[in-house]
Design a protein around this nucleic acid. Sequence first.
DNA 1: CGCATAGTTGACTACGCTCAACCCTGGTGG
DNA 2: CCACCAGGGTTGAGCGTAGTCAACTATGCG
Lengths: 202, 202
Amino acid sequence: MELSIPESLPPALRDAITYRELEAGEVLFHQGDQAQVIFVVESGRLRLERHTKEGKMVVLQVARAGESVAESALFFDTYPSDALAEVRSRVIVYSKQILRTALRDYPDLAEDFIERLVKKTQSLASRLELRSVRRARDRVLHYLLMTALPGETTVNFDRPLKDIASDLGLTPEVFYRTLARLEREGIITRVRQQITLNTSAA
Amino acid sequence: MELSIPESLPPALRDAITYRELEAGEVLFHQGDQAQVIFVVESGRLRLERHTKEGKMVVLQVARAGESVAESALFFDTYPSDALAEVRSRVIVYSKQILRTALRDYPDLAEDFIERLVKKTQSLASRLELRSVRRARDRVLHYLLMTALPGETTVNFDRPLKDIASDLGLTPEVFYRTLARLEREGIITRVRQQITLNTSAA
DNA sequence: CGCATAGTTGACTACGCTCAACCCTGGTGG
DNA sequence: CCACCAGGGTTGAGCGTAGTCAACTATGCG
């Protein structure tokens, strides 16, 4: 029983599901909006971001197919961030009240939900760790190492580099420069949107 | 039924509880240690921190009485961070297997656990947002605003300022300087470990 | 073909880090 | 009771590096 697989869900919850299509760039919800529902990405890609009064922006999550979004709505009345589609996307919409009931009635579902949340906290903790690395060069390397699948040395980007830069908390200029420098130093090799780590990375 | 209140727990879980006392500075677990148990702080204060290879450190959480620690052990085999007591502390120790069973058997408990996790993700997201503010002055103000209880304008620190600085991702020197500057500008007032925001903060 | 957006590079600036010196406090022991 | 010490707190000076602004090229996409 998994939140992301409607067919696996109990009837009460399955029947309450609706869907929503989003064009690239379309906003799903805004920070502060009343939160009655939570979402799972069915296809495409959503970006959750927070904006500070000074105009700074942080990417909290990039949600791809199967990932859930706005679980915090279960315990809060409003959404804590903005969410928008980076590409044309389709999301599954779950009623908050019905989901809460289902979580109580179906231990499998609750377990799946808890696992999602635990992984989300892990992911956020990793990003926080990444941000603590000050030098752009080190941060980029750290990022590449954590992003490359275990055993792999190649990272493929399906989004513009400037978006990756903002994930990293760097300006695009600094990110480009840093990649160029790492390539000049022979530490990485770039082919289009694909980056390979050359040295035997620890 | 709350994880942090042993008396409220079902017998199977309540009987499996043990306790551990920690001196100030004592380590509860290290990053990478085998994770068989999770914890709730009964008294005192724990700090969870991650260390990068380059020697940088990030504080992931400061856990006080009632807060849970290392929930991720439920789904991972090892602890993802170090945990140590900042002051003499006492923690409740829960067996991971028994807790998992209890979460399936007791919806109230699962609900409490989910709520804890949701709040933790919120808290991590807030720290990430804080880190995205670059200027020390703005970051400190942001921090003071988010730390002051709603409606209040005063923040009391029960830990050394240098620890707060590291929470903020600033060196102690920069933090001291920034506080001094804000005080000179009349924006805050300091009395010992207590800081008051003067202006009508938005 | 033209426009929008991503990517790239240079030059300058701002600001946080580092190192270093010093003060102040509380605690310890002679 | 004082001397000493350790740690937190504070301030100064100089450096390194990420940010910013700006100009330009490359790459789609209508």
